[in-house]
Design a protein around this nucleic acid. Sequence first.
RNA 1: CGGGGCAUAGCGCAGCCUGGUAGCGCAUCUGCUUUGGGAGCAGAGGGUCAGAGGUUCGAAUCCUCUUGCCCCGACCA
Length: 571
Amino acid sequence: MRVSKFPLNTLKEVPSDAEVVSHQLMLRSGMIRKLGAGLYTWLPLGLRILRKAEAIVREEMNQAGALEILMPSVQPAELWQESGRWEQYGPELLRMHDRHNREFCYGPTHEEVITDLVRKQVRSYKELPLNLYQIQTKFRDEIRPRFGIMRSREFIMKDAYSFHETAACLEQTYADMYQAYSQIFSRMGLKFRAVDADTGSIGGNASHEFHVLADSGEDAIAYCETSDYAANVELAPLLAVAEIALSAEAAVMTEVSTPAAKTIEQVSASLNVTAADCVKTLLVKAEDGGLIALLLRGDHELNTLKAEKLEGVLAPLSFAEEDDIKALIDCPPGFIGPLAISCPILADYSLIQQQDFVCGANKEGFHLTHVNWTRDLPRPTFADLRNIEIGDPSPDGQGTIKICRGIEVGHIFQLGKKYSERLDANVLDQNGKKTTLTMGCYGIGVSRVVAATIEQNFDDHGICWPPALAPFQISILPMKMEKSDKVRSYCEQLYNDLIQQGVEVLIDDRKARPGIMFADHDLIGIPHRLVVSEQNLEKGVLEYKSRSDEDSREIAVNTLMDELSKILNSN
RNA sequence: CGGGGCAUAGCGCAGCCUGGUAGCGCAUCUGCUUUGGGAGCAGAGGGUCAGAGGUUCGAAUCCUCUUGCCCCGACCA
């Protein structure tokens, strides 16, 4: 391609509403332009990249045995009413009427349509398993679209849905999709992790999110460096530890006056201990209308997701009102402790080995020091109550936890029978009996992958595309071409030769100064660059630089093709 | 949806407080000089100041309403 026929439309200044790097660079490089909130046009440059991502997804899905289809983006309301989601989905579903005043929505996802297709089309267990996918435009009327393509309202998604007679069969396809997803993101050259996800209200056995790792990611991920373990920070469980015996010389429990100390910081400061030496007591509402005390180490944070799943705790989690506390114990918040309290107590696992700790005395203005389990109060029930932290043991027992940030680009899910039951999708089994289909679904935010790739691959000069997604593999930058026939004819020849070999090459045939060329090609992130100048040609060399290297090197003209094929094939 | 903010040329902004009929930088076009990291000089084009209403002799500027967009919260590929 020639720059003269493929306008770059680059911007030196960043539009003021672009917050994140990918959004800024996509606008500056001329990949996209905004039409409205969460609505973007893909310009020629951006579309090349999007198409590359799609092609990789398509190839790997086909490879894994999925079949491509294309469903309408506009869907009749009846199907959504049948599944119950017309009411459930809420305002994120863009609804509309046609000229006959029939109700429709713009598809945010396609479980209903695909289930309808399959229930009408598939009659026999012999046609299963079946895995169908599409790459298509979705619309979700997000409350707050932001970060450009990263969270837009209209976006490109690959969504696949599989149908099975048995759960075992679903598990097999699920495993195949897990593999295919890993293959897709590896081929794209991305650093990513498959993360255990909450199966939530939908149920089912397993769900994994695929996250591209980037500092700007919205999700915190706890992962283990020495194993495959990875999970959302809120979901990563902590394991119980063994009890340890109290040492004989432990000091006697003492009541101390702490009139001004209500928070953990104040308490630890006034008693000259660390926050980790303190135990904090949180009172939350119980299902039976009473209260439950939750004990945490002073430096830990309560994980509400975990807490509200515990037996007896009211969900959604709500803290005790002042009146409730008064009814339970005559003590203001700030001095509450687990001794002689008449409600059930749940303590975090990290407190199993806690000794000699500080806690509230249940008496205004006083705390207790040198408190120990068994000796001073009975051991409470222990449970997993807090967020996992850096350095905690990995739940799979294989090492310690680190935390990084990620951008969710894919999600695979064992759906089970949720939709097939609602929509009555079944087949006849071997015995001629009706069996409800078991389903899985598998999504990739293809347009989001493009943005996430930038979040992971950029520098001060612009985007650094992994070769698999780069809009072009190599740039030819001729220096002073209009003054030098030698440069011109050499570049033209080289350009044609590379095209012959099927290399995606971009020649900058503008009458532009070198600085403009360098800046533009760096900004749009072409992985390889050849600079051709008259002086170098006379020496029989030209200059090569990889986008990711600091410095360039010379390549002799007569070995150029060999060198280039080495460089391009090493990707 | 709640809280905050913005709307002036393709992009980034000034002008508004204190009304007098719109300006700067980048980009675009022309010419000359430049030519290895977003050049210099000279010139040109481009704005119904988001829209509607009001106040006024006169409104980008003051008032009212409307619309669009952005940021902070819960959701998601």
